[in-house]
Nucleic acid binder design. Structure first.
Lengths: 318, 318
DNA sequence: CTCGCCAGGTTTTACGTATAACTTCCGCCT
DNA sequence: AGGCGGAAGTTATACGTAAAACCTGGCGAG
């Protein structure tokens, strides 16, 4: 019976019988029991996606992309949002280990990741692990990254081209490789231009937090002419702070973001930002994991990003 | 061995032996095999959450709340975003049926729901189903609702109190009980006040869509003084349309939303809206499902909502 | 002193699947 | 005609757990 549905009955069962079996299965409404199948096969066709928080469009997009590819291959994707979202579920990774074929994890889920690493360190079992947005030299069977460095370079290029020289980097206060890259790349690109100035302010990723964090830097004569934000939410907070201190965007202050979330076009003026294809990111992550499971080489190369120029950037003092 | 870890070894195994077993299990790094356990017990401690799309903060919050309660009871939550997000995965519900203990479904996931209903109709197996935001008289073992009617009533009250009489209802063009309630309740509340006018415009739930849909209604002398939106995203679109036609908010036009998403405070002025506690919604949904599984009666009563008055509403012609 | 009972421990079975191993039957070649 | 090979079909086994069923030995009561 499993032969027929499994599809590999050539030379084992006659075509007529196969058809009879199919008819009978349909008649009785037969559905294979997943638990039994998983037990027998020793694999579950389920992967774990570890994300920092689901409450952001970005990771919702990553999930959607990963789930789409997964479904195409008969896989399912379960989520492991970081503990602060779910509460103190002790070691859900370890307890679910036998129910997983692999893991995809964002480097932004640092806390969850350390739990995983700890567990894997204790014992020998190596569950395939694909890291997203993470140091290629770091842990993980494979790494899939967005070409954030290129995005930051494009932002710097754009602002320099408009004539800006006094920059403020509104950085996400989250310890993650992807944010290190943004800071490093921005500094590197600006270092080549004489007469530029680059200051940095850190903020948690939220509109309110960014507004509070950046406000002081926008007051007084020493204020920058352009604010480069690690994220669209930080940019939205910058809008609010600018309004508070009486600065017009883009006339008095240029602002850029990264992500191209819905909020980027909800605010006025619409935000110049770097578009990240979250769904493609998820797809690539899942494809990489599938490749690892098949024993193949994962696709190489970072995922390209693109600068979307909107109304929040202009020449300084325009 | 399973006895000790199961916790019900009183009168079966001596305390000393239980301790020895525990020590040995820890030593060997023993982890129970989930597939085998599920097969043996005939239940999986996994529930399916059916949502229209994950790319919205709201359902991300619902998931977070549901997952939190689930984790506390040793349950996991897997997602079934509607097909358009995932692609044509045939009948994932049916195929995963044996791997589920129950289902929580939003009425907004109409397409996915019909698949579920169809499958359940064919056969006798009744998987516990908790409906969210849905007609209490409709299908489902239990129903958990937000008190949207009360929220709409508060919005109407607030605007009437400010002196508004000419209303536009920007309605979500999604066939769902929750949106029917909003329309019905708004009309009912306004029907009691002489001299009021209520028009309706429909729009898909997106900023761009709303901007295009509402723009025409804001031009000309016949324009309303207040726009009541089914959702914060629709409100954000209304902001953009208002700006296009040169209307100031709130001086020329009052706008209200529902949800209290991040976008509500990102836009300027901040949006007067009805706060829905998405996480609590998810928690209640999960608790109801757990109650059903335990054979108990689910908690009664709608979840209260609250009007958050911000800067987008004022007296007409202020 | 013997029987019975019960705490404490060991063996057995079933869950539903996938597949290896085994049986049966028929036709064809030598 | 005998046997041999392969197609078609049948039976057996293992996956790892939970729990029922089944042993065992010691102690108290009659």
């Amino acid at each position: 019976m499993s032969l027929v549905l499994g599809g590999k009955w050539k030379g084992r069962v006659s075509a007529a019988t196969a058809e009879r079996v199919r008819a009978a299965a349909a008649e009785l409404g037969y559905r294979p029991n997943l638990a039994a199948r998983n037990l027998r096969l020793g694999r579950t066709r389920t992967v774990l996606l570890v994300v920092p928080a689901l409450t952001t469009e970005f990771f919702a997009g990553v999930y959607t992309g990963a789930a789409r590819v997964a479904a195409r291959h008969g896989f399912g994707v379960v989520l492991y949002p970081s503990p602060e979202g779910i509460g103190p579920a002790r070691d859900p990774f370890a307890s679910a280990q036998s129910a997983l074929d692999g893991v995809i994890a964002s480097s932004m889920a640092a806390d969850a990741l350390s739990a995983i690493r700890g567990d894997r360190g204790d014992r020998g079992d190596q569950l395939p692990l694909v890291m997203l947005d993470s140091d290629p030299e770091g842990p993980g069977t494979a790494t899939v990254n967005l070409d954030i460095a290129d995005g930051v370079r494009q932002v710097a290029e754009h602002l320099l081209g408009l004539g800006h020289r006094d920059f403020l980097h509104l950085a996400a206060d989250v310890p993650s490789w992807t944010f290190e890259v943004r800071a490093r790349e921005l500094a590197a690109r600006l270092a080549g231009v004489p007469g530029t100035r680059l200051r940095t302010v850190r903020s948690p990723i939220s509109i309110k937090g960014a507004e509070a964090a950046v406000r002081g830097a926008l007051e007084g004569a020493e204020r920058p002419t352009a604010v480069v934000c690690d994220d669209d939410q930080l940019a939205a907070g910058t809008y609010k702070a600018a309004r508070r201190v009486g600065l017009r965007i883009p006339e008095d202050l240029s602002v850029t973001g990264i992500d191209d979330l819905a909020v980027a076009t909800a605010i006025d003026p619409e935000l110049t930002t770097v578009r990240l294809d979250a769904e493609l990111f998820g797809e690539r992550g899942m494809r990489a994991l599938l490749a690892v499971l098949e024993g193949e080489e994962p696709e190489e190369g970072d995922i390209p990003v693109s600068l979307v120029v909107r109304g929040s950037t202009a020449a300084p003092g325009a």
